[in-house]
Structure formats: structure tokens, C-alpha cells
Amino acid sequence: MERIPILKMGNFLLVTVQVDMHDRLAMTLQDDLTGRIVKDHAHGVLIDISSLEIVDSFIGRMIGNIASMARVLDAETVVVGMRPAVAITLVELGLSLPGVRTALNVDKGVELLKGCIEQRATANGHVAG
């Protein structure tokens, strides 16, 4: 069965969506990714959608779900590389993905994730101390 590959980069997982996703593939990704977060003890997830030519409400919902599930599993999610035309269309559609962090490219996404995790570590430390 067709699957979207998930790469491990240190503490982070990187998913690059390169195909026009049909609904089943999106659901499989959701399952695979949550499984890998637990298995690899990942603290962050980067979803690179720079190849995606459209994001409809189904894929949008899947991205939102992944972010929420990852948070429950103690990992931050950053969506990177959304194209301008896709962003304009998503906003018009009424889907602004609240609660999902975004970055222009993978490099900036990694920076953002590191920042988030540091912040969380100090916050936790503060509460503990």
C-alpha cells in the first residue's frame, strides 16, 4: 500500500508530502505519524507541504488533527512551505488552521521548533522549581 515516508531528524520527524493526496492516504499518514511520535520519542513534527497544489477542507482537517494529536503526545507541529495560492484559497474557504504553527521553509521550521521546545523546557523547569 502507498505510504508517505516519515524521516527522523534528531528529535524531530519530517514528512514531505509530494503526491496529490487522496483521502485514504491522508488518513494513513495520520495513523503512521502518531505511531512514530510515540515510538521515536519525537518532540517536534515538520510537515512540508511545498509540493501540494491544493489543500481542501479534508486535508486541512487532517493537518489540524495531526497538530492536536501531536500536542497530546507532547510534540509540537510546524507546517512549512504552503504556497501563496493555496493559502489564499484556504482563507477564502474559511479554514485558517488555528493552533497550527507555520514557517516559510524547513530551515525556518526547525528554528521555530527549537525555540518552542526551549520555551517549554524553561516553563516546565519554572513550574517544577
Partner: peptide, 17 residues
């Protein structure tokens, strides 16, 4: 234009579903 393409394709995807 690219934006017009993306809008009609996205609408088509929603309605097909």
C-alpha cells in the same frame, strides 16, 4: 491564473467529496 486555478480545483474537490 494560478490563484483562480487553485480556487476552482479546491471547490471541485470539496463538491466531489
Amino acid at each position: 491564473s494560478l490563484v483562480d486555478q487553485t480556487k476552482i480545483v479546491t471547490a471541485a474537490s470539496e463538491l466531489a467529496r
